[in-house]
Design a protein around this nucleic acid. Structure first.
Lengths: 179, 179
DNA sequence: GAGTTACGTCAGCCATGCTGACATATTTGC
DNA sequence: GCAAATATGTCAGCATGGCTGACGTAACTC
């Protein structure tokens, strides 16, 4: 069981059993990571699905529906349900693209931005505190680990999403066309 | 905003915005982390809930129902549904406790063990590969980070769960059994 | 003008959370 | 020994958020 026999430059080695506990740590960490936002969302009558939509629209103003589907990896119908609620209740707005009128570019309203920030603040606080408690120098490595946990054919998408942060989505195939 | 002013031994500092991308990395990592097992589970007519139950029973033979509820943080009724299926289809068995006959101690059957191992192998492979790709020395730090992401009042429970790995659960009111 | 694309929507199904109430067996305490 | 507490099971019903398939509309492309 303790399959420790590896090449010289392998990871200093977690035994097979330790790696299973990694899976458990991920489970518990994620479970608690979403629990705080969940409580707030409940007071709005929203769920996790709303949070994800609100987050990515907030993060990437002008996001198109198709892009959002790609990010969330859910179906159009699943998205439509929560997106409609967010729009009806004034957290998100749509505007037709100027170049391509079929596109519905998504933006948060001020009200939506406020909620998005409130939720993000909770999670950022937890992450910040976890990084501090994990000790200096943990940041970069953990980031590399999390990124490497993403399926290979998705890593590129995620990388460009992360880079384009706080820039508007290149939604209209025209850099000048925002807002 | 760019709250970089910290004590001298603070984490080398991710900006507020970088910390948000941490949340996204967690989302994507977790999304893909469960996607592979999900596919296999589907062929058995099972879902994630079954996976979690099977995993923790496999990992902690003799687990009691109440302990499982504590780990999963779901209600008895939610658990009952999936547990019943796992029992009915011969993946998990129950035995009454010897000291306390009210307890139903949970064990995986050989069939259950096989499935549990198959699913764990997928996740272990992903973790192993991610650790390698993140570079040597990432392991310990990431582990500390994930642990620190768990809510404080839960960390103790998780810690003792991880330690007791591959030992039978102290199900018969062993003095070391902290609810 | 036909076909494609981006999106919306309707109808309905399934998995997995939830609450509250109640049944049963067993252990514990007086 | 009997009442109360405990561990578990179960019933009925609800909500969220996944899913599929089909179809409609507007706008762009050729």
């Amino acid at each position: 069981m303790g399959g420790e026999a590896k090449g010289p430059d392998a990871v200093p080695s977690s035994s097979e059993n330790d790696l299973i506990s990694y899976a458990e740590l991920l489970f518990f960490a994620y479970r608690d990571f979403i629990s705080e936002p969940d409580e707030i969302l409940e007071t709005y009558g929203f769920g996790r699905a709303h949070h994800r939509v609100l987050h990515f629209v907030h993060r990437t103003p002008g996001l198109r529906v198709a892009q959002l589907l790609n990010i969330l990896k859910i179906t159009k119908q699943s998205l439509a349900r929560v997106l409609k609620q967010l729009i009806d209740e004034g957290f998100v707005t749509q505007r037709a693209g100027k170049m391509d009128g079929r596109e519905r570019l998504l933006y948060v309203t001020p009200k939506g931005a406020k909620l998005a920030k409130e939720l993000a603040a909770l999670q950022v606080a937890r992450i910040k505190s976890a990084l501090e408690s994990a000790g200096p120098g943990t940041d970069a490595g953990t980031r590399r680990f999390l990124f490497a946990m993403i399926s290979e054919d998705e890593q590129q998408h995620v990388a460009s999403l992360l880079e384009s942060s706080s820039e508007p989505a290149s939604s209209d195939h025209d850099p000048t066309d925002q807002q």
